[in-house]
């Protein structure tokens, strides 16, 4: 039996998840090929004299851990929202073509060999972001034209656009040279790099704002996850809520994708796992998905940079390899529980 969601329970669970996330972040900052002494990190800084411990801890590890939190939170949070909006537990943040759109953008940037940067962002990131947002807009308008069964129309449009753009990516790959292919492939597999603090502040703020906005739509998303017409009879302006929720979820996904490439699995299994344990109420699902998603990706990224050190695995490989089995165990345990009930 699970108790009803009250503000108190929500706050307790969210605080616990936040605490877990912060401790995991701290622990992961300590892990790596170089041993870092905390004492040296916080020691008095003498100007002009480099402090290697501080450089590694703050500029490299902390920046990367925060990046992983931002990306993981964005993907898991938008995954939860997409699953609810599309009433499909198999949906993930990439289902409406964001992945292939962003991939195509990244590929084009690599192929054109663009050198300029925008607000310190590489052309790959800028093109990927534009590709992702553009694709969602395209899928959305196709879905609208496609017919009255809006959800099915959207899903089909997503599938078709995904296939089409994937074909374009394959075409570009076939005419690209090997160094271009190498760059794109690494990006497509999902890859974390150290970002500047400006980038972290900006994207962190954007993802936070998106998650908070989505949280306030949560009661309405609950009703929409039953059916559109039902939600309307319960007094919800379905189209308005849908547009807002899609817009915010797509925005934070595009942000995550432009930071780290295509990291699979986080957006699918984290919301699922939360639902299995704490139920499908979006008021709890959205904040917990964000926090647990962030924690999970920090762990996965730490594994990816430690396990074959000094080389690094693409983090997307780790999320799938680690996340898959964990998820299967959860699913089996959950089904056993269900089987025990009359």
């Amino acid at each position: 039996m699970r108790p009803l969601l009250t503000p108190g329970r929500l706050v307790r669970l969210v605080l616990a998840a936040a605490l877990l996330m912060v401790s995991v972040m701290a622990a992961c900052c300590m892990v790596g090929t170089e041993t870092v002494s905390l004492k040296a990190v916080f020691a008095h800084q003498t100007p002009g004299q480099p402090n290697p411990d501080y450089e590694i801890f703050v500029k490299i590890r902390l920046a990367r851990v925060i990046l992983a939190v931002i990306v993981g939170a964005a993907l898991a949070c938008s995954g939860a929202v997409f699953q609810g909006l599309l009433r499909n537990p198999l949906a993930d943040p990439y289902i409406l073509g964001i992945s292939s759109g962003a991939g195509l953008g990244a590929m084009v940037a690599v192929m054109l060999g663009i050198q300029w940067t925008l607000w310190g962002r590489s052309p790959i990131a800028v093109f990927a972001f534009a590709g992702a947002v553009g694709t969602v807009a395209l899928v959305w308008s196709i879905g609208r034209v496609a017919g009255k069964y809006h959800v099915t129309g959207l899903l089909l449009a997503g599938v078709v656009v995904n296939a089409f753009f994937s074909a374009l990516i394959m075409f570009l790959t076939s005419i690209a040279n090997s160094s271009q292919i190498q760059t794109t492939l690494f990006w497509l597999m999902g890859n974390m790099t150290e970002e500047t603090w400006d980038v972290l502040w900006f994207s962190g703020g954007l993802v936070c704002a998106g998650a908070v906005g989505l949280f306030f739509l949560a009661p309405k998303l609950n009703a929409i996850s039953l059916s559109d017409s039902d939600a309307r009879n319960l007094g919800i302006h379905v189209t308005a809520v849908r547009v807002c929720a899609f817009g915010m979820a797509a925005m934070i996904t595009a942000c995550a994708v432009s930071l780290s490439g295509l990291i699979g699995f986080v957006g699918l299994i984290i919301p699922h796992a939360i639902r299995l344990i704490w139920g499908p109420d979006h008021r709890l699902l959205i904040p917990l998905s964000a926090l647990v998603g962030g924690t999970f990706l920090v762990l996965a990224d730490t594994v990816s940079r430690v396990v074959v050190a000094p080389a690094q695995l693409p983090v997307g490989v780790v999320t799938a390899l680690v996340g898959g089995p964990i998820f299967i165990v959860l699913l089996i345990r959950h089904n056993r529980c269900l089987g025990g009930r009359p």
Binding site: R2, L4, G84, R87, N88, P89, P219, K220, N222, A223, S225, L226, S227, D230, L234, G235, I236, R275, G279, P280, D281
Partner: peptide
């Protein structure tokens, strides 16, 4: 009929009536 994609409990389902 109302199809339920996600496992809301009876109480949670009835509480949705209060959304407005």
């Amino acid at each position: 009929h109302t199809d339920m994609s996600f496992g809301f409990t009876v109480e949670e389902t009835v509480l949705m009536a209060r959304t407005a």
